[in-house]
Design a protein around this nucleic acid. Structure first.
Lengths: 115, 115
DNA sequence: GCCGTTCATCGTCTATCGCCGATGAACGAT
DNA sequence: ATCGTTCATCGGCGATAGACGATGAACGGC
């Protein structure tokens, strides 16, 4: 819906400019667009990897809420999920995060290349 | 609402990590979390500054929709607005954009400092 | 003075977000 | 076998996002 003419090179079989597809980039930013998720990311990275519960009693959010936030981060590819028995492991995907950063840098550069 | 314990160092008189307040950062990412707004940003920067109309007939969105997107970008501080008669001028605030990029870099670094 | 253009704003609609409590599955420990 | 813990998912609720058309103000040109 509403993808309209935003991505003219979308329908074609072209695998064009990886890393600067507006939809993909926007989706990643969306995952970062909530303070709770940013804090969760920090927390995850501080303690190399966490289970859900660990996050839950750090921030006072309901377990279901935290689970959802984690899911969003996972689906955005920013966090890797490893279902280890009960203690499912959530860990920051540092390269993915660096990737987003690179995308943003690219955007900033494309906005400043002339000067 | 729901700011709860997300910012543990909020209530104290501490002026702690300016520039990495999760709320502020998240708000900027929110502005970037829509493909149309990313494309608009690119367009704005390509043609140094634009009026609303110019953006409107580049992307096929209603004028009101574009106006809203621009407003969101302005309110996020990513775009500067100069009401020049009819042809209101919208221009990317490059330093603000660089700032967001820096915030994200900081986040990435804080996620990778150990390795 | 009158018309066309530009644009911000309002009202409306639908879809999604963000939160929660409840539920049920999976597993560990006793 | 049973109980407690962990966690993903569902359903519901209020709020917000994103889209549009319509409206009215401001201005330029005729």
């Amino acid at each position: 819906m509403t993808q309209s003419t935003l991505e003219p090179d979308r329908a074609a079989g072209a695998p064009p400019n990886r890393g600067s597809d507006s939809h993909a980039v926007a989706a990643r930013f969306a995952a970062l667009s909530h303070p709770a998720r940013i804090e969760i990311l920090k927390h995850l990275s501080a303690s190399n990897s966490c289970c859900c519960r660990e996050v839950v009693d750090r921030f006072d959010l309901a377990q279901s809420t935290v689970s959802q936030h984690l899911k969003i981060l996972v689906e955005a590819g920013l966090v890797r999920f490893e279902p280890d028995r009960q203690r499912s492991r959530y860990a920051v995907d540092r390269s993915a995060l660096a990737d987003v950063s690179a995308s943003l840098n690219a955007l900033v550069n494309s906005c400043c290349y002339g000067r």
